[in-house]
Design a protein around this nucleic acid. Sequence first.
DNA 1: TATTGTTATACTCTATAACTATA
DNA 2: TATAGTTATAGAGTATAACAATA
Lengths: 174, 174
Amino acid sequence: MPTPATAAARRPKASRPADTTPVTLPPDTPLAIERVDSRFLESLIGYNARRAALAVIDVFLERMAVYALRPVDFSALSLIRHNPGITSRQLCGALGILPPNLVGMIHRFEKRGLLMRRPHPLDGRAQGLHLTDPGQALMAQAECTATELEKDVSQRLTERERKTLMTLLQKIYL
Amino acid sequence: MPTPATAAARRPKASRPADTTPVTLPPDTPLAIERVDSRFLESLIGYNARRAALAVIDVFLERMAVYALRPVDFSALSLIRHNPGITSRQLCGALGILPPNLVGMIHRFEKRGLLMRRPHPLDGRAQGLHLTDPGQALMAQAECTATELEKDVSQRLTERERKTLMTLLQKIYL
DNA sequence: TATTGTTATACTCTATAACTATA
DNA sequence: TATAGTTATAGAGTATAACAATA
């Protein structure tokens, strides 16, 4: 049962540097937030990187819909294109996904006629993955779309800034 | 049934700039990939941002385990800390999650005694979210840990580069 | 004995529809 | 009529265990 309560308190957007001071809230302070202060989270690399990744992925989903490719599909097929004969295991390693979760993807690609499996020349257990000609054609298009998309999402960056961003991100994860 | 096949072909790691040329693979080329070439993917912002985010999250999971907080838990409680009285709806908006998926989280926080719900002063349908004193204490610690973690994951960046990275990422998603 | 690819399965995360109470 | 919070549930994504074939 909500009390009718008193009045709205304005939150001063002025100066609160992202701190970690354990200030205890007075237990009787009625407050209504008008605008959410996310400055602390926005000071964290992980938060910013995730937000940026999700923003790019949103555009990616739109533009790759014509090819019926999810981001992970695109990544897998692109790696196969640039590494013909790559094995499932290697693909899993490069994409950071687990073997059981790749099986279905491979099967779908085969059903769509984009991909072929061939006996591995050195290891009888493994199979080399290769794009078919239609697979090549599709991925040539899709990679062009990705390159265009890249320009659009980094629209507010100079080419130099874009390369800097790449380098800095790789210093985080490599 | 795999054929014993022929011989291994070395892949020249030399110069292949990330291109989009639709080169058709000769259908009888036996190849074994020794090292996966990920250069095309590494030229894409989305890929790099995602990899960086995942790398940071890995460290995050380790260090926040002592508080039993997942990344989303930390983000939610941090926002509540810096925006006492925030509503579920506002929290969902800020975190990019859907209302039904926040309910369980809120309940767990309440059961742990970290969070209190109070009637909203202006809207009888809504409830303001506030940290309890133990919640404040936990988050003061956790935010310190996050700040330390931040220094560690950006170890290979200067302070200036770290700020640049932040700015560039925000130019992508804001 | 270890590894590749596979199946089955469980667990988590995310998304949708529908309800209630308040506005 | 619209919105805040909730419930139930469906779907996608991710994880583990175990197996056959090959190294």
